[in-house]
Design a protein around this nucleic acid. Sequence first.
DNA 1: GTGAAAGCGCTAACAG
DNA 2: CTGTTAGCGCTTTCAC
Lengths: 344, 344
Amino acid sequence: MTLKEIASMAGVSVATVSYVLNNSVPVSAETRQKVEKIIKETGYRSNILAKSLRKNESRLIGVLVEDITVWHTAYIIDGINEIAEKRGYHTILSNLRLLSKIESQFDHISIFQKDIEKAEDVLAGMQVDGIIYVGMHDRKINNVLHDIKKPVVYCYCYTGEEGSSVRYSNEKTAFQLTKKLIDLGHRKIGVINGLEGSEPASLRFQGFAQALSEHGIQMKEEYVTTGNWKFQEGKEAALKLLTLSDRPTAIVAMNDEMAVGVFDAARELGLEIPKDISVTGFDNADIIHHLSPKLVTVERPLQEMGYRSMEILLDNIAGISKEDVNITLPCRLTEGDSVGSILI
Amino acid sequence: MTLKEIASMAGVSVATVSYVLNNSVPVSAETRQKVEKIIKETGYRSNILAKSLRKNESRLIGVLVEDITVWHTAYIIDGINEIAEKRGYHTILSNLRLLSKIESQFDHISIFQKDIEKAEDVLAGMQVDGIIYVGMHDRKINNVLHDIKKPVVYCYCYTGEEGSSVRYSNEKTAFQLTKKLIDLGHRKIGVINGLEGSEPASLRFQGFAQALSEHGIQMKEEYVTTGNWKFQEGKEAALKLLTLSDRPTAIVAMNDEMAVGVFDAARELGLEIPKDISVTGFDNADIIHHLSPKLVTVERPLQEMGYRSMEILLDNIAGISKEDVNITLPCRLTEGDSVGSILI
DNA sequence: GTGAAAGCGCTAACAG
DNA sequence: CTGTTAGCGCTTTCAC
């Protein structure tokens, strides 16, 4: 069913049908009714491709994700979709599937410049009005989408150079988390840092360190440990910390999986949380929802990151803003019972 | 940059450029070189929209998901993408976001017929060649996409009526799991069924029951419990089972979260897994990866479900197959140490 | 208020 | 082999 067919059925010109459809030009009530009746009866749906071609705007946003199976990606896409729907845009998804390709060599993304260019070609060919690039890790990457003249927003990653970006706050959040412990009276605070070389790990650690220093607490070397973000190493680090002769009263685990390791270690050692040891996590992952007591952790604003990425992109497309914008959203500390106060 | 511009730069007609681009008609080596040079230099990318309009085929597949944040969805999309990429198709994603809208009233999908129709309008308008509908729960739904004349495949759900579908095997898998326990000598097997009224729950239970009956084992009423798929109710059910005077030697938890509850219950009661009690789960969720001993559970073939959905759809589009096909893929039992053998 | 007609970028007869 | 040309379905001047 095409405009032309509708027009002839209604006994009007194609232009008139178009006017009715788009409310672009006044049409007499009578004509409008006639046309709308036919449209309803036939179940006509206008060809968006043809419209885009003619108007030279697709209202299509390319969402280029490094790996859709990485947990946060789905939530970010969800946020993007929500704004897209509200503003009459649609999203075309391109999935680089990096995870299966690089395993855990975070930085060797340059190897995949080829894949990215291919995806870029397709998206550009589809005439997308802009692209949101969703990272699988929070890190600095090259401006991989340099070849396209459309607006780009990087989400869950950033380029040092040009390009807008939307991230969440690692440093400030770790600061708050640590400050919370300090405010509860803790002075002997152990930390299980994330994988060495990972940017979130070092940012989170900086926040941790700053909270200590701002409160005049000396960081003890033996209280600083590292894990690979996984349960096992988290547990091992916790065992080390908890068996120190002067053991910490609180442990900041830089992600939830390692925090679960802390719980396990504490149980093995017969220590009670939070009475004997306070624990915090990071990520609010599914894995902690059955923990008892409830873990104090951090919820990243994933959906919100999707919203903001989309808003920035659309403003950019609309020409409202021309400059790159780089924003870092705050995280939410969750309620929980895994931290207790210390009598000072 | 358009075909026309390339043509004039190369001093040939648009037709010739098109021939070069598509290898649709023989072109002299000389002309080809000339044209390809210009294409490379200018970074020309053909307008896929225009091409689709002209050819009346978009090579676009609509992926309509009930909720992208439901864990399995991302993996299914990943599978769909992989085949799409291989076969030169692209996917446009539409996300109904049902989860936030209906919470857990599994069957009231009819309320959302409106949302679905809207998504359908858009996808049809985008001239997709077909649609894959990805459910958020494995269940029977109406043929919600009746209004479109393009091929449709339902994935992770099905319509009783018309329409192809791709699912995984609940019944057979639960049968295998149970049989495994029986083969190890277990005769007193408790079960923690999933939420009442849920289709996977009843299918899994049927598989469980059949394994018992095929091996001449009487199902004891007190060995049958139910949970709401969640940790807490799983744990409560396990406590009930494990404190029976004649307690079972094995517990089949119908999902992983409840299996974690069994682990917790066993520990509280001072029972050792698998020496005192064998445990199995279902789903291979992240939540179990730190369990010790390693849980024997079931991995659903999610990516494969994406592959097959796409293959069926593309065959359908190509006209290779016209009939509806409904397939049920087998699951993989994972290796683990949470089950032990019983001396018979 | 309505219609005729040009043209968005591309493909595919058809003619040469 | 190459070019001319007629559309694909739609929007949008420009006349009337």
